[in-house]
C-alpha cells in the first residue's frame, strides 16, 4: 500500500500521509488501552467464575461518574477524587458480587450471565437517578499536547497509556508474586484443588469482581477528561472490552491486553482507510469473525489448563 510518494492509499481513495497515519495509530492505541483495561476485567471474572460479566462496562461508567462526583460535589482535589472514584467502583463490584452473584449457589453460567445483564441495567439506572441524565466531565490531568514525529498527542492520552501500563504491571506482579494472586490463579485452574489447599473460591470470586471493577473504574477515570461520561456510556465500553477479550482469547490476561490494543488499532485504521461511519461496527464485525473462525482468540488459549 506504500506508494512512491510515501503516501498510504485508502480503499476509497483516501490518502493518508505518514504523520497522519501515526496520528491514527496513536489514537487507536489510546482507545486500545482503554479496551484492554475493560477486557482485563472480563478476563479476570471469567477466569474465576466461567461467566462473562456484562456489567463490566458499567464499572467504566461508574469510575467516571463517581470521580466526577468526588471532584465536583465533594470538592476533593483531582488525584484524590480519582482515587476515591476508582476505589468506590471497586466496592460496587464487590457488593454486586455479594448481592447478585453469590446467592446463585449452583453457579450456572447462563443464569449468572443474565444476572449480569440485569445488573448492568440496574447500575446505569441507579447512576441516572443519583447523578442525573447530563454528561459530566473532569478536567484533564495535564493540559496541552506533545508532538511525536509530526503527530500531535494530547497529554491526557499519555496519562491513559500510563494508567493502563501501570495497571497491567501491577496486575502481573500480583498474579505472579503475591499469595493472593497465586490463589486466584489456582482457583481459576482448578477450583476443587484450590479448596483442598485451603483457598476459599467464593472469596476469590468476590475479589475478582472487585478487581475487575477497579480496572473498569480506572478506564472510566482516564477517559472522562477526554470524552465526558454519562449514565449510559457503559454498554458501549462493555461491547468494546468484550470484543477485545474475545479477540485476544478469553481467560488470558496478556491476550486481553493485546486484544484491546489490536482492536483499538483496527478501529482507527478503519477510520483512516475506510470511513469513520463504520468505526463502531468494526468491533462487532471482529467479534463475529473471531467467534466464527478462531473462537479461542488470536493470542492463544485459555488459562483454564489442567495437568
Amino acid at each position: 500500500m506504500i506508494s512512491s510518494t510515501g503516501l498510504f492509499q485508502g480503499r476509497h481513495g483516501k490518502t493518508v500521509d505518514t504523520p497522519e497515519l501515526l496520528q491514527f495509530a496513536l489514537a487507536g492505541l489510546k482507545n486500545g488501552s482503554i479496551y484492554a483495561l475493560v477486557a482485563l476485567g472480563f478476563t479476570i471474572v471469567y477466569a474465576s467464575t466461567g461467566v462473562l460479566n456484562f456489567a463490566q462496562g458499567e464499572f467504566v461508567m461508574l469510575g467516571g461518574m463517581l470521580s466526577v462526583w468526588a471532584y465536583s460535589t465533594l470538592g476533593l482535589p483531582l488525584p484524590l477524587a480519582g482515587l476515591l472514584g476508582v476505589l468506590l467502583t471497586g466496592l460496587v463490584g464487590v457488593i454486586f458480587e455479594l448481592l447478585a452473584i453469590r446467592p446463585r449457589k449452583d453457579g450456572d453460567p447462563l443464569a449468572l450471565i443474565i444476572i449480569t445483564v440485569g445488573g448492568s441495567m440496574l447500575l446505569s439506572s441507579l447512576a441516572r437517578h443519583l447523578f442525573g441524565p447530563t454528561e459530566k466531565a473532569l478536567p484533564r490531568f495535564s493540559e496541552g499536547s506533545v508532538n511525536i514525529f509530526g503527530a500531535s498527542l494530547e497529554r491526557q492520552s499519555l496519562w491513559i497509556f500510563g494508567i493502563a501500563a501501570v495497571a497491567v504491571v501491577l496486575l502481573t506482579f500480583m498474579y505472579s508474586y503475591t499469595r493472593l494472586g497465586k490463589a486466584m490463579r489456582a482457583c481459576a485452574i482448578d477450583r476443587n484443588a484450590a479448596r483442598l489447599v485451603g483457598i476459599e473460591p467464593r472469596m476469590m470470586v468476590t475479589l475478582s469482581f472487585g478487581l475487575a471493577a477497579i480496572l473498569g473504574g480506572l478506564a472510566g477515570l482516564a477517559t472522562t477528561p477526554l470524552t465526558q461520561t454519562a449514565f449510559n456510556v457503559g454498554p458501549s465500553f462493555g461491547v468494546k472490552g468484550f470484543a477485545a477479550a474475545i479477540l485476544g482469547g478469553l481467560g488470558n490476561p496478556f491476550a486481553a491486553v493485546l486484544g484491546g490494543l489490536t482492536l483499538g488499532l483496527l478501529e482507527s485504521m478503519s477510520v483512516a482507510f475506510i470511513s469513520s461511519t463504520y468505526k463502531d461496527a468494526i468491533s462487532l464485525i471482529i467479534l463475529l469473525l473471531v467467534l466464527f473462525v478462531r473462537p479461542q482468540g488470536l493470542f492463544g488459549g485459555s488459562s483454564r489448563q489442567k495437568v
Binding site: K182, A186, A193, A194, V197
Partner: peptide, 22 residues
Amino acid sequence: PEGRLLFGAMSVEENLELGAYA
C-alpha cells in the same frame, strides 16, 4: 486427591507454596 489435581500451569514451587496456603 485421585488424579492429583495439580495446578498444571504453575511451577512446582508455586504448587508447594499454595500447599502451605492454609
